[in-house]
Design a protein around this nucleic acid. Sequence first.
DNA 1: TGCGTTGACAGGCACGTTTCTGCAAGATCA
DNA 2: TGATCTTGCAGAAACGTGCCTGTCAACGCA
Lengths: 362, 362
Amino acid sequence: MSRAETSRRGSRPGRAGIRDVAAAAGVSITTVSDALNGKGRLPDATRRHVREVADRLGYRPSAAARTLRTGKSGLIGLTVTTYGDEPFTFTEFAYFAEMARAATSAALARGYALVILPATSRHDVWSNVALDGTVVIDPSDQDPVVTELVRQGLPVVSDGRPAGSLPVTAWVDNDHEAAVMGILDHLADAGARRIGLLTGTTTDTYTHLSTTAYLRWCERVGQDPVYEAYPAHDPCAGAVAADRLLARPDRPDAVYGLFDPNGTDLLAAARRYGLRVPDDLLLVCCSESTVYANTEPPVTTLSLKPRRIGTAVIQLLIDAIEGLDSDQPVEQVIPTELIVRTSSQRRPPRTTVSPPRSPKGS
Amino acid sequence: MSRAETSRRGSRPGRAGIRDVAAAAGVSITTVSDALNGKGRLPDATRRHVREVADRLGYRPSAAARTLRTGKSGLIGLTVTTYGDEPFTFTEFAYFAEMARAATSAALARGYALVILPATSRHDVWSNVALDGTVVIDPSDQDPVVTELVRQGLPVVSDGRPAGSLPVTAWVDNDHEAAVMGILDHLADAGARRIGLLTGTTTDTYTHLSTTAYLRWCERVGQDPVYEAYPAHDPCAGAVAADRLLARPDRPDAVYGLFDPNGTDLLAAARRYGLRVPDDLLLVCCSESTVYANTEPPVTTLSLKPRRIGTAVIQLLIDAIEGLDSDQPVEQVIPTELIVRTSSQRRPPRTTVSPPRSPKGS
DNA sequence: TGCGTTGACAGGCACGTTTCTGCAAGATCA
DNA sequence: TGATCTTGCAGAAACGTGCCTGTCAACGCA
């Protein structure tokens, strides 16, 4: 067949192929591919000519064909934990949103895009998308999705250290024990005599490590543990648990809440029992939400730095995908940040640690 | 070549192709494809045999090859608005998270997955991923991404009615004018004499329609407009604008805030000026966050029902992708919901409209 | 027996790239 | 002047499916 054949039988008018570009430019397919991808040894004149013709025809390379040929899709799976049929976790909206946002940015900057996928292998969607690698959030012990992915030879990086002997390529996490210890010390320094904990009934690593650290701290300082656990995926249960915690006969004079909504839950419960914060009750919760800067009073929060975690996870994963032997360790620990506000300070409400406002005066 | 040839030269041990399954099962490639996809006329015995062999070999069909052949990838783009380099909008965390969650669920239920993509066409990522269709959130007037996508023949469904003559396939939106009118009437019923508005300086449709509705309402009832506008993407600017609004000589006795953090911003500003809510100042803001159920006092919020919007957008898009002439109109209006709490009620704080708590008494 | 029909499968092409190999023509060199 | 090397490009083989077009046997029927 002659090369001047522009349209084959089934060619859609809106989709120009590399063949059409080659014919229109009067060169071969190889030359077009090399010119557009910066490969080969072509004079700049030819390269420019081909690019111009491609632009004129509105040529867009087929991602499917490229993926089939090269074996790289430029897609990264983002596995979100699910409760029942709903993806994402209910309790960590702000954390997940920030983390996903940073991960998306980092991936885009290196030419990758994120695909949201369920943590359950039940869906057949998993086999319908060509992935270069996957990010998993808080994988469970013998996570079937992770093991299957690793079996296929795909790199897997997890947010949260893997439980058991889960064979992930790399992981990123905070030092949750140190964070909890730091908070408890901070509350004790502020004058707390009996510190309570609002924790979860789930078995994920974050909850487990944090609770263990609390118990160890109590043992160390000789305090009886005072804690309430509730199913963290139930938004109403948190308020009830906060209420229970403050209704106990051995009511704590300081509380640390492991989950995002615990701050408002505890504030509301404190009001119901007539407890003033921070005078009668010191308060800290783990949250990425900015609302705690403006509550009455502002609540001290622990930030897990989801932006840094999301970025680190993506960098590690893409390094593994592209075979770069990163000089970074495959285990990365991101420091947490305690944002101290009024709720955990007995002394006069001095300047709080928060980003400076634009106007100086009030 | 004989058919017993199991491994070709470059075959990775971990990846079995359809060829290997055919050879191992002693049938042809066609038979394997038909057996696994439920096509063709095969006796159940053959079908079961092929499936069993495929399972034994751990066969996973290549998504890239399937996409190349069928033209369908099972991927839906989710275009998120960006401010600068950061994807997502800062002000609508909860809205976006809920909407994306529902969209993810709906897509997975029909066998599709979502790909997070930036609204800027600057990134070359767009041409590296094979999409069946795209969801765009609040597209701007002559959105280049949208026009390019429809030029390629891809269906595009937008969350938010398209401005100008943007040629989207379908769109889903709330009736923002009616929602604002309803809120203003609600506040007037509660005794408000001068209602203020906290709005944005951006030109998106939501801000524009809501502000216009406010101005029309003011004209209708003969009230001078009292509003402050600020760049909604700046988290600090909201607090400043709320402060400015309450510092005006013509201070309003009721305020509606268009953006999620406005509730806490306004509560904080009211405390600074010694205004009691709701006695001195009635408050409503547009938010999907649950924190307003537990603030002091609880704040009345307008919910845009992001879950319903996310679901509707995906259904319309997949219907368009699969060529189903949906009996639904291509323009869908989702009703909003006003969740009335203490902050907008002058009368005694009666039972608030919120999901019932598990325990009856306090 | 001849002929259309139907079930059960095999052969092979096409999807649109990337890339390996090859091949002429000019340049350089012993 | 022939041999070797670069430059500038073309041919064609994959990548792994889906599906269209056969082929062959069995079968019903006149």
